[in-house]
Write a protein that binds this DNA or RNA. Sequence first.
DNA 1: TACAATCCTGATAACGTTTCCGGTATCAAT
DNA 2: ATTGATACCGGAAACGTTATCAGGATTGTA
Lengths: 338, 338
Amino acid sequence: MSHNGKSITIQYVARAAGVSVSTVSRVLNKKDDVAPETAEKVQSVIQQMGYVSSLAARGMRSQRTNVIGLVMPEVGSAYCFEIMRGVNRIIAQIHYDLIIYTDCDPSRESAAVSERAFVALLNGGITDGVIVVAPTASSFASSAPVVVVDPNHESPELPGVISTNYDGVCSAMNYLIGLGHRRIAHITGRMELVSSNQRLQAYKDSLCAAGIPLDETLIEFGDYRSQAAAASARKLLAMENRPTAIFAASDDTAFGVYAAAKEAGLHIPTDLSVVGFDNLHESSFIVPALTTVDQFMKEMGAVATDMIVKLIKGEPLPAMLHVIKTQLVIRDSCSPIS
Amino acid sequence: MSHNGKSITIQYVARAAGVSVSTVSRVLNKKDDVAPETAEKVQSVIQQMGYVSSLAARGMRSQRTNVIGLVMPEVGSAYCFEIMRGVNRIIAQIHYDLIIYTDCDPSRESAAVSERAFVALLNGGITDGVIVVAPTASSFASSAPVVVVDPNHESPELPGVISTNYDGVCSAMNYLIGLGHRRIAHITGRMELVSSNQRLQAYKDSLCAAGIPLDETLIEFGDYRSQAAAASARKLLAMENRPTAIFAASDDTAFGVYAAAKEAGLHIPTDLSVVGFDNLHESSFIVPALTTVDQFMKEMGAVATDMIVKLIKGEPLPAMLHVIKTQLVIRDSCSPIS
DNA sequence: TACAATCCTGATAACGTTTCCGGTATCAAT
DNA sequence: ATTGATACCGGAAACGTTATCAGGATTGTA
């Protein structure tokens, strides 16, 4: 019900059960050197009193909390939630708990805030390990292991998981080029991340391989989010020689393009072809359904969780960087050039 | 960089700065009875060593951690993320941190798991207070204050925040009825929540007030999510005398209806009108843009945060239940009956 | 000069756990 | 009957903080 101020401790349980705190602790941690009937009695008292051990105290004493932390750049992005899901799935299987820490916003000048959040989690003694998604910081001192999903461009040496961005983009670009498109624009992601760099590079290389000269004015720099993407798309679509296709660095970016196209009275895919990257859940719902590159974020989250658990247990990692294959998903947002 | 096993404690700092741990603690907590030059020296040592105090230890000793917890039923729902944002905005202003705890899934039989998560947060001594969104449990023993967003149907007495579900639905229903619809179906949300009950009741009352007889076969019970909603919508649209409009209990539910309509080859809004509830971000993006009831989730999150902070500080609440006004947002998903 | 007041600081005791160590009791074997 | 092994349990230290208390300078005042 309401809160009653004082929480019950292991001492109360011990007293009520007529045993020592040590024994209660043993029962809690399922050590086997305790008599069955004693264990049963203690258990029943625990049940009855509704006792739960203090995570703070446990974390302080034994260096294990069985909690892993997840740090995400932004609260609103579906990309993060897909990863969350993957993490959660593994977490639920093994006997861990999950704490999610979200910075307010990477675009704000909250570097101090986000740094504070990072370090609090890392050194706060509250998590056994931390998974960081698309970090703004390139490095951070830590007393606990860290795994990065989509590493920072400047710190590729941290253990992490990433998708085959380059190959994925190439397949998407080749698809567009195969449809006859030659003026293909690109709206990038956050350029401090490896993923954005790889995608941009693949975009350029694909054009080059097809013998299409690079037009720098067709490249807009974004932040993976729809709002900025819409602004970029507006600029691109207002060009007198506007592109016939846009490769968006993420599905969210593509959604921004959708919005801008709608404003401009352009119909997708007849007037404009759009390709995204991520394959978010809603990308199949939106009309027209988005052609995109699936990067299996749920799996990325799951793999990152496996890695962090291995690190926590002190087991060796098979590889510092786990690479996950991408796959082009063709839907309704592209049409051949007429 | 990588983790180095041993974390630096307040003792190291004290030794390095040539002062006692008490003094370091005083500097950390910004007590003012410390000499300026001493404080400065300690600060510099802290900076240099990269020391951060252990949340676990601090939480154990002083009963304040300056962390508030957010418990959400599900990781994938955009509804939750809107609330998150509202919470985050306030959190960032006041000097608190946020920990988000997500149950795996309310649909799984993980009552034990979710209960564990609840209580761990509540009694774990790690948070000063907890905001619970759309709880599956109707009550929970706690040593810390709790605020509920969208309370459980069986425990409306907990401090919480809710929107004017009834009025919101009435305005939506009257809009549909005004367009000439008479066969209006309803796909409900999770019926253990107050919101779903209020919405269902408003649906029934609106029909009654308009003199439209209630057809129970037009009511499908859902869980606020798109997948179940799609199944429900399939059933409804397969009826020989199918409804001309569907009032979905949430925007996610409406998205499920969109998917089912597409499968059935029905065009929205010409063949079927759809109204949602929530006004999610993507509801304005989706085609056709969804007519829905805005329940200002960001504000709900913000208000809940204000409430929990008041409770933590021991200040009185102006009201146990804070009610937030809803508003009908008319877009492109409804058309008059022909 | 003596005494009080002020300002700063250091010891030390908690907070609620887990872990280590040692100590009974039981029981079988010598 | 003594020993050794085994099974179980309790006492106490430790984890890293903060809060309380008291003490040592320094200054002000009579």
